[in-house]
Design a protein around this nucleic acid. Structure first.
Lengths: 209, 209
DNA sequence: CTCTCGGCATGACATCCGTCATGCCGAGAG
DNA sequence: CTCTCGGCATGACGGATGTCATGCCGAGAG
């Protein structure tokens, strides 16, 4: 943002949809003498263009954003600019999110519960080529194993999450109602839930949905 | 935090459970020459004690926190220290939240989607005795009317929100299963939903739950 | 070639959910 | 006193949900 930083400062992009939080994080990082927030975006689908336009070295991405999730934006950025380091900073430390983020090319995964100092430190460490992950969360991700839901099971479970009736889900996804019931039944079993509502909750907590 | 501020700076407390966000907001407010963040807490139930211990003039409270919600903390603080101004800064601009916050004694209600500058400005304005509310949100709160759910309907709907079976809810709340079904049926009708899942979603969006 | 897997479907059936009718009780207001 | 409201309950019943059996198809691996 400011041009009076040292030319060796790390050029950082911040992607976070809540304006107040994003600007506060930019202010916080701005206090670091070696970090320069050169771009801020509020939508996932603006990440790549902004990163390229500002010659960004480290992108700090929230996950839940409009336009594209932070994980999707990470994958896109990794494809377009493989040398750009990616830090995911998210509200929920869900194991499935961690797994997907790392698969998408992220170099660090932070939870917003952590002290603010960890964000600046992660920015410096990823630039040095390090990986930054909470060991407890890493263990949970490894213990959970891969997401057991097939693509279609996920689609149907996601469609059911807001209270949609089977008949409506069937219409929406161009399936028969019986097929919807089958997919939901499988999703309920794979999440060890008792019904769809519980299955949604479990899948979300694990970052499977 | 720092003691080298002018003695006329506004003494502010920040309550926010996410460490990174809280410290970033403190850093942001710390850049204002007339604002001094003298206390930070991560739990709603720590608000009152910290506000009194630090002679706080303005308390900035998130809503969703462990130990006590920001709205409950606002009510408690308003009772213990009526001259302390209260700013609610929340992720979701739910009409029911606004209503409840103002009833609890809040002087301002901000949504985190807003630009960061609005937070410092709200702090200054409430200290001058002003009320700060987004007019669109205020209109929505007035249009929604009061929460139509009775206390028991709310209890039962909340208990149903994570997928609990009626039999389990009945056990948990010491009711008969038929009564649970009745309360849920009423909640479903009052929220104009088609089933419990939708009723939960609607009630949450309106801040009724 | 066979086997596995994901996607899709039909059909049967038990259980759960949601609605409605009905009614009792206590508290508070008029 | 009556009326209203919230809390609670029983009972009947139709519809939605969830489970399971079964089977077809295409794609990919061995």
């Amino acid at each position: 943002m400011t041009d009076d930083q040292s030319s060796t400062a790390i050029r950082v992009l911040l992607a976070e949809d809540q304006g107040m939080v994003r600007e506060a994080l930019a202010a916080l990082l701005g206090l670091e003498g070696d970090i320069d927030v050169v771009a801020q975006v509020a939508r996932g689908d603006e990440v790549v263009a902004a990163a390229l336009a500002h010659d960004v070295q480290v992108a700090v991405l929230d996950i839940e954003m409009p336009g594209m999730t932070g994980i999707e934006a990470a994958a896109a950025l990794h494809r377009e600019s493989p040398q750009t380091k990616i830090v995911i900073a998210t509200t929920f430390g869900r194991p499935g999110y961690l797994r997907r983020a790392m698969e998408a090319g992220a170099d660090a995964f932070l939870v917003k519960d952590a002290p603010a100092a960890e964000l600046a430190e992660a920015v410096r460490r990823v630039l040095r080529g390090e990986r930054v992950i909470d060991p407890v969360l890493a263990a949970a991700a490894l213990a959970e194993g891969a997401n057991p839901l097939t693509g279609r099971e996920r689609d149907v479970l996601a469609a059911a999450s807001d209270g949609a009736l089977n008949a409506e889900i069937a219409r929406r996804l161009h399936l028969s109602e019986g097929t919807v019931r089958n997919y939901l039944s499988m999703a309920i079993q794979k999440t060890s839930a008792r019904n769809r509502t519980e299955a949604v909750r479990v899948a979300r907590e694990k970052g499977w949905l």
